[in-house]
């Protein structure tokens, strides 16, 4: 039965291409670092300059908070524009390594 199947496979060229490329063996790629824009609410005076500069309209400024959504392309223009220095760029992996050092 197996033989017939093998012949049929070869005759009809129904070879399972994925047989040798099993998904369980595939590599899972992960980003080395993730960056994001961090806001310091204490020093922010809600002037709205960062909002007016943002090309993707990712920033919304209220009286109490500054929200940056996933549309951010990390052009960092808001950081250089902010008169109070309330915005900064942070790297997640750097923080992790710093925590590991503490331990």
């Amino acid at each position: 039965m197996i033989k017939i199947g093998g012949i049929l496979e070869s005759l009809l060229q129904i070879k399972y291409i994925t047989r040798n490329y099993d998904s369980s063996q595939s590599y899972i790629t992960t980003a080395s670092s993730k960056r994001y824009i961090n806001t310091d609410i204490k020093s922010c005076d809600s002037c709205g300059l960062c909002e007016s500069v943002c090309i993707t309209n990712a920033i919304t400024v209220d009286e109490k908070s500054v929200n940056i959504n996933e549309k951010c392309i990390l052009c960092r223009l808001c950081i250089s524009v902010c008169p109070k220095g309330a915005l900064s760029e942070k790297i997640i992996n750097e923080e992790e390594t710093a925590d590991e050092k503490k331990l």
Binding site: S52, I55, C75, L77, V81
Partner: peptide, 8 residues
Amino acid sequence: NSYMKNIP
């Protein structure tokens, strides 16, 4: 776009 938004 506005002048400042054009920078990037």
